[in-house]
Each structure stands twice: as C-alpha cells, then as structure tokens.
C-alpha cells in the first residue's frame, strides 16, 4: 500500500505536461459536482482513481487479482470490483477508497451489471458457463444460470426484468428472465460477443462481436436482429477491427464502439447506424464510460496503459491519462 502510493506521484509529473489542456478543460467544465473516474488495471491488480476535472490521478488502490469488470452503484458510493483470479467481487467504499468486504461470485467473474435498484449484481463467470446473481446486501448468491460457453457481456433493462448475457464461444445473446432466472430466448450474433448495451428506453440492444468485427442492433422485444453495423478504417487491416465496449447516449442518438487493436473508437449514428467518425485513442481499447453529464467519454487502452478522453460535444480526443498496468474496466460517478 505504502509502496504503491509512490506511483501516482510519478504519474503526476507526466500529468503536469498536460496541464495546459487540463486547465482549459477545467475552465470549461461547470464546477458543480466532482466527477470521479475509476479504472481497473487487469495486470496491475489495482484501481486507478482519477479526478475528471483536473485530469489528475488521485490514487492507485491495490485490490484483488486480475480486476476486470467494475460497477458503480447509482449513488456513486460503492464500487464492485470483479477480481477474476480471486474468484470474488471486492466491494470498495469510494469515500474511504478502502475495500470493505467481499461478495461470493462463483469462479472467474469477468463482467457484471447492477440491477436498477442496486440490490442485485449479475456477473458472468467466464470459466464456468454461468451467470451468477448476487444479493449485495445479504452478500449471498441467489441464483446461478447456465448459459453458453465463456459468458461475458452483461446488459439489463431499465425495469430490471431482463438480463442479457453474451457467450463468447457459443456466440449468442441469452435473454434471462430475472423473476424465474431462466433463459427465455437466444439470439445468434457474430464471433466472440463481448458486450451488451441497452438504450435507456430499452427499445434497442447493441451487442459487439470482437472476432466477427460487427455490432448487432437487436430489437429486444421480439427479439430479432434489425441491423449489423460494420466498420472500415482506411489503412487498418480488417482483422484489427475488434469491437468490444459499447456505450449509448441517454437519448440514443450516439453509439460509441471501442474497436480493440485498431486503436480506434467509432461513433455510430443511433438512428441510421452509419459510422460517422473514428477517434484515434490508445492501444487496444477495451471499455468505455461516459461522465455522468455525458460530456466526455473515457476509454481504457489495454496495451498503452492509459485512458483517452473524448469530448462528446466537439468530437475530439482531448486528453490521455496514464493509469496502472493493462487498464480494463472504467466507471465514472458524481461523487
């Protein structure tokens, strides 16, 4: 703990180099609530905490082994950290930045999603073909749902009644009824689906496929595939375009897709499903998160050990911030 505290200090030196941009950003940001960014470092076994306004790393907190998916409660006070190699979920109090307790998660938890009321955390157990539902208050497992091989992507409707899980080798999106904990429908998507994201009004579901190189647009009410989004970047081999994280703005108009080793994030029009722009970010971009005001989008760049910040309004990459080793998940809260 003591040793690790030196790391952010060194990084702060680098951050000062970016001070001009940071100052400009700070000036433009409405100085209301502090927005805090949490990044899990898969190899660094830590969570990097960044103050969005200043762009400074506040602290790098050591956590369990191979932290990947992270989920922040809606009040921003609790961070759930899926420590894959420790087979558990670590719970961090974001005020004290201490891990206070663990939740049982089943083996190898990779990605999770919280129910809208913050009471249940659903996690994909990548190594065991299961989705586990965890009661975060009672700290107990309430259901294990068998799904396809290598479950990963997790999405939930705003009423909390349907959880969608994607399985990377079975290549399906499984629709799970959260009352019966049974699968009621399956939709085939492309190779190695990584992420499932509902629009805020639940009318659409986006599922990325890393090896397939596509994002499927699904009407979850049927369910059926409405459209397949494909990507093409001049000078980048098609094989390097590997969609992973997906985030949609509240109004559904803008869909951002992280494209892995192509080092790009695509901006897709939420109505026409045409790609409007590609942003060059760091290397092997994995996951995405908006600031709560949706003015900025953070990307975790797994190989270059940094996060990039995209200005959503002005469509430009405005900053990159060094974090821990192999950043993976990202969540941002108003706290």
């Amino acid at each position: 703990m003591q040793l690790l505290k030196n790391i952010p200090r060194e990084r702060n030196v680098m951050n000062r180099l970016l001070a001009t941009t940071a100052a400009a950003l700070a000036a433009s940001a409405v100085a209301a609530v502090a927005q805090t960014v949490y990044v899990s470092n898969e190899r660094g076994n830590s969570i990097t905490i960044i103050d969005h306004e200043s762009g400074e790393v506040v602290e790098e907190v050591p956590v369990g082994q191979r932290p990947r998916g992270i989920n922040l409660s809606s009040d921003g006070k609790t961070l759930y950290i899926l420590a894959s190699d420790d087979n558990r979920v670590e719970v961090m109090d974001t005020e004290t930045r201490q891990v206070t307790h663990h939740l049982p998660s089943g083996p190898d938890p990779e990605l999770g999603i919280l129910s809208p009321d913050d009471k249940i955390l659903y996690v994909a157990n990548e190594d065991d073909n299961l989705v586990t539902a965890i009661d975060v208050e009672n700290r107990s497992i309430i259901a294990e749902i068998p799904v396809g091989i290598e479950p990963e992507g997790m999405g939930i409707t705003s009423d909390g009644k349907t959880v969608v899980n994607t399985s990377e080798t079975t290549n399906m999106a499984h629709f799970i009824d959260t009352e019966t904990y049974e699968i009621y429908a399956n939709i085939l998507v492309d190779q190695r689906p990584r992420f499932a994201e509902f629009t805020a009004d639940d009318s659409l579901l986006y599922v990325s496929a890393e090896i397939g190189g596509t994002v499927k647009v699904i009407d979850p009410s049927v369910p059926e595939v409405l459209h397949t989004i494909t990507f093409e970047i001049p000078g980048v081999p098609q094989e390097a375009i590997q969609p992973v994280g997906v985030r949609v703005t509240e109004d559904g108009s803008k869909v951002y897709v992280a494209l892995g080793p192509s080092n790009r994030v695509a901006l897709v029009n939420g109505e026409t499903w045409e790609v409007e722009e590609y942003f060059l970010v760091g290397q092997r971009v994995w996951q995405l998160a908006f600031t709560p005001d949706e003015k900025f989008l953070y990307t975790t760049n797994g190989i270059s050990n940094d996060v990039s910040v995209i200005d959503v309004e002005n469509n430009e990459v405005v900053r990159s911030i060094p974090v821990g080793e192999q950043p993976w998940g990202v969540q941002i809260g108003d706290h």
Partner: peptide
C-alpha cells in the same frame, strides 16, 4: 444444461 432444451420456452432460437 441438457434439461434446458425442455425447459426453454419458445424464443428466437428455441
């Protein structure tokens, strides 16, 4: 997992 076939209600890929 095998029992799922029987248990699964009609769906897109049922």
């Amino acid at each position: 997992a095998v029992a799922l076939i029987a248990a699964m209600p009609a769906g897109a890929q049922a």
